[in-house]
């Protein structure tokens, strides 16, 4: 079985976000970029399937600038077999990402696509579902457990109110949630080996897909700040403030 894992290069989760003063966007200059955390979970799950003898091959794919090569090398160092960079310097919306991924799926013919539920920069939570729709494949979003057997995927999902289990025919698209696994760190020898693994580059413009954004970003602003609070010295003082100042209890 072949597994395709889309990975996005995003601002590292531990870096403080700075909104540009002119409202034109977020300042990303010289900041640490990393693989989207949910995509690390997706890569890990694919590697687990390979270690279990279920997956034979893992292909990582990223859509982004030349530097997204680093993200793909990380996936290769974790254990992916090969990588594809669909290169573009433009900001590509989830719908266009899904269309590009569809063309990669058409060419690679994977049995399973595992991807993140959400990119922690745009917080869109839509690309996996869109890809599944464009392919006419079933989907299981927010996966916390995946079992593959007899050409089917049994996926437990983190939903409002608890957990839900679905059975999907393959091929299918699965999006990862936080509890699916704990992604491994790439060891130094594996980082060295990853440098020799194949990484193919495709020019996004060559795919004949419209990449122009369809949502016009009017402004990007800092959220309003809360007014400063106070420290209280005791439980009694806290209860008094909640009763008589905030009048909330």
């Amino acid at each position: 079985m072949k597994v395709l894992v889309p990975v996005k290069r995003v601002l590292d989760a531990n870096v403080a976000v700075r909104v540009k003063a002119d409202g034109s966007g977020v300042d990303l200059a010289n900041l640490k970029m990393s693989m989207n955390p949910f995509d690390e979970i997706a890569v890990e799950e694919a590697i687990k399937l390979k270690e279990a003898g279920i997956a034979a091959e893992i292909v990582a794919v990223s859509i982004g600038p030349a530097q997204a090569q680093d993200t793909l090398r990380t996936a290769l160092a974790m254990g992916a077999d090969s990588a594809i960079l669909v290169k573009t310097d433009e900001t590509i919306e989830p719908l266009a990402v899904a269309k590009i991924l569809k063309s990669i799926v058409d060419q690679q013919a994977p049995d399973l696509v595992i991807m993140g539920k959400q990119a922690i920069d745009d917080d869109s939570n839509q690309t996996a579902q869109m890809l599944a729709a464009l392919l006419g494949w079933p989907q299981a979003t927010f996966a916390s457990k995946v079992v593959i057997a007899d050409g089917k995927a049994s996926v437990t999902r983190e939903v409002d109110g608890g957990l839900e289990t679905l059975e999907l025919d393959l091929p299918a698209v699965i999006s990862t949630d936080l509890r699916l696994n704990v992604p491994r760190y790439a060891s130094l020898p594996n980082v060295m080996k990853a440098k020799k693994k194949p990484l193919e580059e495709i020019d996004a413009a060559s795919l004949g897909i419209s990449l122009a954004p369809t949502l016009r970003v009017i402004s990007t602003a800092r959220p309003p700040e809360r007014k400063p609070g106070v420290m209280v010295g005791s439980v009694a003082e806290l209860v008094d403030k909640l009763r008589n100042e905030a009048r909330i209890i």
Partner: peptide
């Protein structure tokens, strides 16, 4: 979790972006 699972599929089938959340 239901809306987030259903609506992006609708958007893709209509060939439009979803405005999320």
């Amino acid at each position: 979790t239901t809306g987030k699972s259903v609506l992006p599929r609708v958007a893709a089938l209509l060939d439009v972006m979803q405005v999320s959340d």
